[in-house]
Simulated assay, not measured.
Amino acid sequence: MFKGFYNLTSAMLSQGKRLDVISNNMANVATSGYKADTYTDTTFREYVVSRVGNKDKSDPAEIGPASYILAPSRLYTDYTQGSLEETGMPLDFALQGDGFFAVHSGDETVYTRAGNFALDEEGYLCLSDGSRVLDPNGEEILLGTDKIKGDASGGIYTEEGLLVAQLGVFSFEDNAELQRNPQGYFTGDGAEATVGTSVLWKTQERANVDLIQQMTGMMTAQRAFQSAAEVSRMYDQLMTKAATNLGNV
């Protein structure tokens, strides 16, 4: 009977984690360049269930596998292209194809698909949190003005056509090896400057979150969580009653 508590508790923990991931995806539906996460779980241990007779147990029949509890497996990030939207803003850039912008966040170089840039107080190209955008050589980009033009290779020009900076676009051998940090940036080793990705000026890449899919997943996870909680309550009442009756024997 106590094994049932393990199953039910692990189910509630797993569905709770799934709800957290879905909620985070939905909260970032308006975040430029956001990539949706998917939570997966796995069985902690499997065993074979067999049926045996009441008296003759010499010839059991295998029913199938079962598991004691669920355990977290990993988060998978969907790196597919988000929709592209023209904004008309001179400091908005979007990537079409594989690759990431690089920025300085604290003392670390991290990577992002967000291209809704701005200028900080010193005139450096940055994101809303102040992280400065880098060029292909890992140097911060000083513009000083938003009176610029951009081309498909990431070049940034004055209105007169003078090249003043180059956006760095970096790629990885395997995006699945990247990790998302608490600030929402991607971290990983082996970044290489790439020239095969188009950079769209005055454009933003929207989050690749499918709201209908996320809402369906949320309702499914909520129902599973509530069902496990209700059965767990029934288990608790049953064991309380059993313990009380045993105490009266």
Rank of each mutant, 00 (worst) to 15 (best):
residue 234 M to P: 00
residue 10 S to T: 10
residue 142 L to D: 06
residue 60 P to L: 09
residue 2 F to C: 00
residue 77 T to D: 01
residue 57 K to T: 15
residue 132 R to F: 03
residue 74 R to C: 01
residue 69 I to T: 10
residue 172 F to Q: 06
residue 172 F to E: 04
residue 88 G to N: 07
residue 17 K to C: 02
residue 102 A to G: 07
residue 4 G to R: 08
residue 41 D to V: 01
residue 154 G to T: 05
residue 87 T to E: 02
residue 111 Y to F: 13
residue 46 E to R: 08
residue 245 N to A: 12
residue 163 L to P: 10
residue 65 P to W: 02
residue 204 Q to A: 09
residue 72 P to W: 05
residue 168 G to N: 08
residue 226 Q to M: 13
residue 218 M to D: 06
residue 3 K to E: 08
residue 183 Q to W: 05
residue 163 L to R: 15
residue 157 Y to E: 08
residue 111 Y to E: 01
residue 189 D to A: 14
residue 110 V to G: 02
residue 187 T to D: 01
residue 18 R to M: 10
residue 140 E to I: 09
residue 79 Y to P: 05
residue 71 A to I: 09
residue 111 Y to S: 08
residue 198 S to W: 00
residue 25 N to S: 12
residue 246 L to V: 14
residue 39 Y to D: 03
residue 28 N to G: 03
residue 45 R to F: 07
residue 227 S to Q: 12
residue 19 L to C: 03
residue 171 S to L: 04
residue 84 L to D: 12
residue 197 T to M: 11
residue 40 T to G: 07
residue 136 P to S: 05
residue 197 T to D: 11
residue 26 M to T: 13
residue 242 A to V: 13
residue 178 L to I: 05
residue 158 T to R: 09
residue 61 A to W: 07
residue 83 S to F: 05
residue 151 D to P: 12
residue 212 I to N: 14
residue 188 G to Q: 01
residue 94 A to F: 05
residue 220 T to W: 00
residue 117 F to R: 10
residue 219 M to G: 03
residue 107 D to Q: 14
residue 34 Y to T: 03
residue 21 V to Q: 04
residue 125 L to F: 11
residue 94 A to W: 07
residue 124 Y to D: 05
residue 26 M to I: 14
residue 51 R to T: 15
residue 177 E to S: 09
residue 54 N to C: 01
residue 128 S to C: 03
residue 205 E to A: 01
residue 76 Y to V: 13
residue 14 S to K: 01
residue 69 I to R: 09
residue 186 F to Q: 03
residue 198 S to E: 15
residue 134 L to D: 00
residue 244 T to A: 11
residue 60 P to K: 10
residue 213 Q to P: 00
residue 151 D to F: 11
residue 240 T to Y: 02
residue 230 E to V: 04
residue 86 E to P: 01
residue 188 G to R: 06
residue 87 T to Y: 03
residue 43 T to D: 10
residue 127 L to Q: 08
residue 67 S to P: 03
residue 243 A to W: 05
residue 74 R to G: 00
residue 67 S to Q: 09
residue 189 D to Q: 13
residue 200 L to F: 03
